[in-house]
Structure formats: C-alpha cells, structure tokens
Nucleic acid binder design. Structure first.
Lengths: 268, 268
DNA sequence: CGTTATGTTGAGCTCCCTCAAGGTTGGTGG
DNA sequence: CCACCAACCTTGAGGGAGCTCAACATAACG
C-alpha cells in the first residue's frame, strides 16, 4: 500500500514556476520578511524538489536529517499504536513544514506520509541552520510556525474531548478551509482534500461509517460537498457556526513580543 | 474559585532542602549533565521559590516573561472554549517545566493553574537564556523535555480517539504513575493526584458521572484506589494492560543523534 | 477489465450522556 | 469546637449518539 520508490528523485527543476512558494506567502503574514529573506528562502526551497506520484513514506535516507516542506498537495503525520493501528495526528498542506520538531527529536515516534500529487522541498539541517543564521527573520518565522502547529494539536485535543460528531467534522473541515485559504488554496469555494474518509474519521475520533453519515448530512443540507479529493464549501458561515469555529488558534496575533526580541532563534 | 493572591510571594528560602530538585533528577536521565550543570541549575531554581496555598492562576506579573518549574505538587494547563468552558490539555508534575513553548509563543492561548500545595520555581527569560548559554547541556536537556511534552500531547490525542472509557481512564492513570516514578514521586505504590474528577474526566473526554463509574469499577477490582488526592496503584500490570500502556512516548531513547549535535540550542 | 481500496447504507445494540438527587468532604466563621 | 456551606463525589434511570458488522456500490488502478 505504501511505497517508497515512488518519489521522483533527484533535483528536478522543470521550468521552475516563478510563483512564490506557499510557505513564503504564509510566513510573510506572521513575521516581517524582507525582500532578501524571501528571496533566500525561495531559493533554498528550489534546490531539491520532489514530486510524489503515489502514497509514500517520508524517510531519512542519508546520514543527515532533512526538513520537508510541502509546496503543493498534502502530507499526513501518523502515530502508531501497539496493536498495529495507526492514527492521524496532523495534516500538512501547501506551505507547511513537516514536523519541524522532529529535526531535534530524540526518537521518531511518527510517520509522515506524502500523498500523491504532492510537491515537496527538502532542506538539509545544515542548509537550514545556515539560512537561519544569516536570516534571523526566517528563523523567527519558522519558530512561529511551529508554535501554530502545536496550537493546532491542542485544538484537535479539545475537538475530540468536547464536541460531538457533527461539530467535530465541521470543525476539521473549517480548519482545513481556513488553512488552505492562508496559502491561496481556497479558490472558487473549494479546497483540495485528498485524504481518505477513514483517516478523516479517525482524526475526528469517529468510525468511518459514522463519519460518512455525518458528512452525508452536511452534503444534503448543502453546506459542503466532497468528491474527487475536493471539498466544496457552499455555506461557510453555516459550517463554522456548526463547528463553533474561531480561527484564533491558527493566526498569531501581531506580536509585539516577538518583534521586540530579535534574539529569538531556532534551536539549531 | 480561582484566586491569585494566594501565592506566597517574595523569595522564600526557608531552610532550603539540600534535596536535588526533581527537574534535575529527571533531566539527568535524558542528557548528560555534569556536576557544574547540575549545580548551576539547582541554584537557578532556588532563587525564586513560591509556595501555593490554594488554586491560583499563573500569570506574568512583570514585563518579562518567566518560566515556571514545578518543584513539588501539580499544575494544570487549560485551553478555553468560546462558550466559556475550559478544557484540561496538560498536567505538570514535580520536575516539569510549565509550558516552555509559551516562552516564545506569540499568543497566550492557555491558562496555567497551580494546585494547592505546589512549590514553584520561577526563572526569568533572561536568566534562563544566560544559563542555557553557559551550559549547553542544560539547553539540550530542556529542549528534550519540551519534545516529550509534545509527545505526551500526541498520546492524549490518540487516547481520546482510539480508546474507550475504561482504557482512557486506565491510560491516563498509568501515565501519571510512570511520570511520577521518573521523579521519585511513586512511593509505596501511591502517587499524589490532586486534580478533581471533573478535570480528570474532561481530559479523558468523558463526563464526570461516567468517569466516576469507570473509576469505581477499577476500585472494586482492586486495581487502583483514589482518595484524599492520592492514587494508590494496587495492580500496576493490570492497569497498564487495560490501558495498552507503553512508556515509549515518555522516555527518549538514548540519543546518539542529540549527543552528536552539540550545537543544539534552545530558541533563546 | 479484473482487482483492490474506498465510499455508502442498513439494522441492531451498547456505551456513554443527560439530568437529577443524595452523600461526603474540607474549609470557614462564629 | 461546632455549624454551616460550597465544592466535590456518588449513584440511579432512561435515552440517544455513535459503534459493530455486514453487504453492496463505486471509484482508482494496473
């Protein structure tokens, strides 16, 4: 089911789109990135791009650990249970850094799976360290981004504990829509949503059957539809109302505190 | 219910126990800490100790953010919902650093509540930065600790999503027992457990009534008992078997990777 | 064009929730 | 020291949300 030979290896720079990587777009919202910062980051992201054709596991093939940044498409982060089950604990859309924490983690306790159609940029630890040193603003922005990832995890926790099935489903969909919007992936009221209903159900702490039923209700009420790995949001206010969704946890307030502490650095 | 005037302010050094702080004990398991490292850390932890007499919120009273480290007792981390509810997202026992991440976080999205009887050491951001600079091993150890905190969060996520009430309850109790043991707080088969059943239930994604029923069953089967803020573990293997508990997520493997990267630093 | 993963739907059951009432405990003030 | 009070814990009855299991439909894929 999961293969690793599927990644188009090697440095492929096929008529590199001049388009700004989603990550740069997103980070520029959090932190002040100067033109040089943006340029340097964009360039660093263009050095080792891989296209994913089928579901494939992300692994460290070399000695050195590498960051993986999603340029387009999706990646999922699973945690494994003793009994062989696995559970989706995070999703990475375009512009997300896969598991920045793990760069310094003692133990790899999760698996990252890249979904077909994704485009991934890889960056070695040392390359990143160099970039962060020369461009403190980039370091700060990455750190902020990691904080938000952590905040999302906490929100998922609350989602499971305090909401019912309908609310959970709506909340997760609303979150995906919002996050996609941040990087310009919410066009014509639809976003890419290439995960399986089973994984989606799991992330909501539901069985696939029941998640499906709940989704079906949302379809019938013309709030969303979801087919061909695409989610169409027809009535966003309704969706967010059902979920009790508030995007606070996804958007750092304009942060005096961080701006005023230029000595902030990533742990590298 | 929650008061803030309850903290015994000021530097109280009442016949400072020569005892090594739990944090030092715990960190020494993760990372190599030399005698100087331990001494410096112990000393830093002794400069501003506060005793908590009733439930009280932790807050930044000054300009500068401060770390809070639990020396004895418990602290809880809550996230607030729109509707006024709050949800327990983390517990800090003796030897835990309260929300290290928040030191660099853009937004405070959680509240930390100190439980009565706790002893807390506070350390200013700058003091910590200085300590981390002079003692890289301490910096590394703190970072590892933060990784484990993050790992615990993920485990809670899985706990809610993939286990039933009985398993959830058992798992959380098993985790507390294990964490307490790490810092020598598991004596004579019992640990301190000063949270309310309502909070405990919430952390398990259950209603207080049902959590109580499940607990009662565990009591009757002589697996644990819980009264007077103390949990007695009578049959630990049974408890861990019910939970499907494995302490992997609480113990970083002895990490070549980290040892071999002495340039690892905390983001300060 | 078969084969496998994924999505859809149904019937029945059970786990867990809701709501409500009564105990118990610890803290507080007289 | 006792009476009181407010949290907190405990227990019950009944209902509904979500699970299990199973069959089928549909889509992806070689």
């Amino acid at each position: 089911m999961i293969m690793t030979a599927s990644i188009t290896h090697g440095r492929s720079q096929p008529a590199v789109k001049a388009a700004v990587p989603s990550l740069v777009t997103k980070l520029a919202r959090y932190a002040k990135l100067g033109p040089q910062d943006r340029l340097a980051l964009s360039r660093a992201l263009s050095l080792d791009i891989r296209n994913v054709s089928v579901r494939s596991m992300l692994e460290d093939n070399g000695r050195e650990r590498k960051l993986a940044i999603v340029l387009d498409g999706w990646a999922c982060c699973y945690r494994h249970l003793r009994n062989g089950q696995r559970h989706l604990v995070a999703c990475y859309l375009a512009g997300d850094v896969c598991d920045l924490h793990s760069l310094t983690a003692p133990r790899r306790d999760t698996t990252i799976v890249l979904l077909a159609g994704a485009r991934i940029a890889r960056m070695s630890e040392s390359a990143f360290a160099a970039l962060a040193t020369v461009h403190p603003a980039i370091s700060r922005a990455f750190w902020l981004d990691a904080q938000i990832a952590s905040s999302i995890e906490r929100e998922w926790l609350v989602n499971l504990a305090k909401r019912n099935a309908r609310e959970r489903v709506a909340h997760l969909l609303a979150e995906f829509a919002f996050r996609a919007e941040l990087v310009g992936g919410f066009t014509k009221g639809s976003i890419e949503l290439p995960i399986t209903q089973a994984d989606f159900a799991g992330a909501c702490g539901l069985t696939p059957s029941h998640a499906n039923r709940v989704l079906r209700l949302l379809f019938e009420q013309d709030i969303v539809t979801w087919r061909n790995a695409t989610l169409f949001v027809h009535n966003r206010p309704a969706l967010e109302a059902i979920a009790g969704f508030s995007p606070d946890y996804l958007t750092p307030a304009v942060s005096r505190s961080v701006e005023s502490r230029p000595n902030l650095r990533l742990p590298i």
